[in-house]
Design a protein around this nucleic acid. Sequence first.
DNA 1: TACTTTATTGACTAACTAATAAGTTATTTA
DNA 2: TAAATAACTTATTAGTTAGTCAATAAAGTA
Lengths: 184, 184
Amino acid sequence: MARTKDTIVLLGDELIRKNGYNAFSYADISKQLNVKNAAIHYHYPTKPDLAEAVVDWHTDSFNRFAEKASSKNEADQIKMFLNFYASIQVSGKLCVIGSFATDWNSMEDSVQEKVTEFTENVLSWITTTLDNGKQKNLLTFSSPAKIEALKILTNMCAGTQLARITGSNDFTDIKNSILEQIIT
Amino acid sequence: MARTKDTIVLLGDELIRKNGYNAFSYADISKQLNVKNAAIHYHYPTKPDLAEAVVDWHTDSFNRFAEKASSKNEADQIKMFLNFYASIQVSGKLCVIGSFATDWNSMEDSVQEKVTEFTENVLSWITTTLDNGKQKNLLTFSSPAKIEALKILTNMCAGTQLARITGSNDFTDIKNSILEQIIT
DNA sequence: TACTTTATTGACTAACTAATAAGTTATTTA
DNA sequence: TAAATAACTTATTAGTTAGTCAATAAAGTA
């Protein structure tokens, strides 16, 4: 039964994106899971090991998202993407990319590499989706798709951060404005 | 002589924006300053006290920036603002807003309040500058100035974060694209 | 000159941290 | 059934953390 092992990743992810990588400890997880901290070390010997597993989970999760979205048209796919970020915002979490970027300098190389790969994966999905949507006349934007993707991603990533400071209306405004501008 | 006291804030700010609030310790500062950690506690009794001083420093710093920029036209003011973020990116730091947002839940109320005030101050400066620039036909954008301001700020904030992961070209591309689109 | 304030050190503490080693129990597997 | 493996606990360690307190030295003030 891989029950505990999986739950650790979910709790780890929640703690990382709610409180930050350096703010959480194995004790936080073990308390919530009602096991001793040594049990966490049994499944994930070191903190970087756990961090890697968290990034892997996000990779799988995003691939499932892309798979699920692939049945819709490009305008709806972008909508789904922004709605995904809206759910992050509502749950009080942050985008993984932003969370790991802030604690980048305390991250092991192995973790950094996985985060980089994940980020490039997300960016290329947005870029391709924008490009295809433009060709089908479902989407409009003037800059190259890659740069439009960078702007949308940074809007969402820092949008969830900003919402903590100035409130969730700011996030919603950003999200709606993006959709208004790119959907024909 | 307030030499040490001021240097502590500068070092604290650098550590917060390079490594994160929860990743730095009084020991890091005391080593660099060649004083004992008790000396840091003399000037800033608790970590939140230091964090408040760091935010105050940013408030002063931004006010000086706005004052200095006020002699230029609105297009140049926005350019200056983006260039300011470019210098943050180059120095390997992050935007204060993003740094504090990520560690928001480990922040004292007193610090949160100061960060909120600072962020609203920055946002209203961008909004006003965009608005004035539009009226003078120096700037063009279709959404309300406030929302355009939110988008530019989140682009810059997460742009410095993303640059750590995927490289500084992405930041430069975002920056140039913003300028191309809003400057007439 | 005597007192007070400012800036600092030295010495310490209590709490927390990631991580380890040895032992325990239950479940597979051969 | 015996051995092996998986999933833990108990107990502990070495290091770090923010924060305190008493002592000190220098500079300013009355």
